[in-house]
């Protein structure tokens, strides 16, 4: 199978050749042509500048300022603030803190478990949806309901189910086990409860994304597999899954970014408890910044979290690319 030319290749191939007879060096650009190109470039920058300024104001500046704050010894004053010195102490305090390590451990574990579960369940749901006929629209609508709920509302709803006094699930487990469980009061069950809510809420998102990928796979690929005598299992592993890889990578990237920033679920369900067992990095950053009013350390928590999540995403993309290259060679 020959690879289709990429957009970059096409654009390079179709670029106009410099004027002049073949075999002779291209004439040096004259003054008027260069001036015209500069004018065009200036006009381009002029038109792009509102968008660039907006991006700089709402994205680049806050990020850079947050990084600056994470190195700053800040003193709040009446009606203002003063940066007294620049220091690396906040990072030393954050990285040396057992609480930060525990929050990192929880966030990382939560991300890995939920992303894997959601990918598997979402893919299975998408495969089922792909084979549904007229009912697909209805099933899709029902499946999307949890995803459409606002996170805090969904967490509160599950909070009622898990509630130790009147929670429906607590009662049900109490009937089944003969003893009322303390779902949100013990570290393992609290984390499990949180994983359940996240999987319930976010699997539909993964299913929709994967379904879109399934619908893009051309039918003739399956016909070819059938002619070659591939059974359903082989077709899935050798045809469907490789074709889905790029879109699954996008879904996983989105999910890593979201799961690593988990805030609303622990905030509503457990406040980071029991103890600090479900305290995510985002909750830790919030408490450091807004409860303890430690601006520099809060910014250091935010910056380290951002660095870690970017690192995770890059690592994932590298692994994905290596695997794709290997698959391509195979």
């Amino acid at each position: 199978m020959t690879a289709a030319p990429s957009a970059a290749t096409v654009s390079r191939q179709s670029a106009p050749e410099p004027a002049g007879p073949p075999g002779t060096p291209a004439p040096r650009e004259g003054g008027p042509a260069r001036a015209s190109r500069r004018r065009k470039a200036r006009t381009g920058w002029l038109f792009a500048s509102p968008a660039l300024l907006t991006i700089a104001a709402v994205t680049v500046f806050p990020v850079l300022f947050s990084v600056l704050l994470s190195f700053a010894d800040i003193r709040l004053e009446y009606g203002g603030f003063r940066i007294e010195s620049l220091t690396g102490d906040h990072y030393a305090a954050v990285l040396g803190s057992p609480e930060w390590r525990q929050a990192l451990f929880f966030t990382f574990g939560f991300t890995v478990v939920t992303v894997v579960l959601e990918l598997v369940l979402g893919t299975l749901a998408a495969l089922v949806l792909d084979r549904l006929g007229a009912a697909r629209g209805w099933v899709l609508a029902v499946l999307l309901l949890p995803w459409a709920l606002i996170n805090v509302v969904a967490a509160q709803l599950w909070g009622y189910l898990y509630n130790g006094t009147y929670g429906g699930l607590t009662w049900l487990f109490g009937q089944l086990l003969g003893q009322q469980p303390d779902i949100l009061g013990q570290p393992a069950s609290a984390m499990g409860a949180m994983v359940v809510v996240d999987v319930w809420k976010t699997t539909p998102f993964v299913a929709i994304v994967v379904l879109a990928g399934l619908m893009l796979i051309p039918g003739d690929v399956y016909e070819a597999a059938e002619i070659d005598g591939a059974n359903a299992w082989t077709t899935f592993w050798k045809v469907t899954l490789p074709q889905l890889r790029p879109i699954m990578a996008i879904a996983v990237l989105f999910r890593i970014l979201q799961a690593f920033g988990i805030f609303d679920l622990p905030f509503v369900l457990t406040q980071g408890g029991p103890g600090t067992a479900t305290q995510s990095l985002a909750i830790l950053g919030y408490k450091t910044l807004f409860q303890n009013l430690e601006i520099g350390r809060g910014a250091a928590v935010a910056t380290t979290t951002a660095v870690i999540v970017i690192g995770c995403c890059l690592l994932f993309l590298r692994l994905f690319k290596a695997q794709a290259d290997e698959g391509g060679r195979g």
């Binding site: 509630n163 130790g164 006094t165 009322q180 303390d182 949100l184 009061g185 457990t270 408890g273 029991p274």
Partner: peptide
Amino acid sequence: SPATVTTYVEADSQDAFVGGR
């Protein structure tokens, strides 16, 4: 005290009390 008291703030303990538990 119920094991779930570890998840109680004022409103939860009061709900249980006024509910007769």
